[in-house]
Simulated assay, not measured.
Amino acid sequence: MKRFIESAGIALKNEQEKFKQFHKLSVKLWMQNLLDEEDDEAKVRRDMYLSSKRMNFNSMFRKLCVEVDLDQSLQRNI
Rank of each mutant, 00 (worst) to 15 (best):
S26H: 02
N14L: 08
F22V: 08
D47M: 06
N58G: 11
S51V: 01
K53D: 05
V44D: 00
L29S: 10
K24S: 13
M1I: 14
S26P: 07
I10W: 05
I10C: 01
F57D: 11
S59W: 03
K53R: 13
L29R: 00
E67V: 00
S26C: 08
M1P: 11
F61G: 11
Y49F: 13
M48A: 07
R54Y: 04
K28T: 10
L34I: 02
K53T: 05
Q75H: 06
L12S: 04
K24M: 15
D47W: 00
E67R: 02
R54P: 06
I5A: 14
I5M: 09
D36H: 07
W30D: 01
K28F: 14
L29P: 01
H23W: 15
K24C: 11
W30F: 13
K18W: 04
N58Q: 11
L50V: 10
K20D: 12
Q75L: 09
Q21T: 15
N58S: 14
S26N: 02
V68A: 04
L34M: 07
L25G: 00
D69L: 09
F19L: 04
N56F: 02
Y49S: 12
N33F: 11
K43M: 07
K2I: 09
W30P: 01
N58P: 08
F19E: 04
E17C: 03
Q21S: 05
C65Q: 13
R62I: 10
L50S: 13
S52A: 04
E37M: 11
Q32V: 02
L50D: 12
L74S: 05
N33K: 14
S59L: 12
D69M: 09
F22R: 15
S59A: 12
E15N: 12
E15M: 03
I10T: 01
K18N: 09
K2F: 10
L12F: 08
R46A: 11
R54N: 14
L50T: 14
F22K: 13
K28C: 11
K63N: 12
I78H: 14
M60Q: 07
E15V: 02
N77D: 15
I78E: 14
S52C: 06
L64I: 00
L34A: 08
K24Y: 12
R54F: 02
M31N: 10
R46W: 02
E67G: 01
N77T: 14
I78M: 11
K53G: 00
N14E: 13
M55N: 07
L74E: 09
S52G: 09
S59K: 15
D40C: 12
M31P: 02
V68S: 01
F19T: 07
M48R: 09
V66E: 08
E17H: 03
L35Y: 06
Q75S: 11
D71I: 00
L34H: 04
L12I: 08
E41F: 12
V66S: 05
K53Y: 05
F22P: 00
R3E: 15
I10M: 05
N77V: 14
D71M: 04
S52R: 07
Q21P: 01
F4T: 05
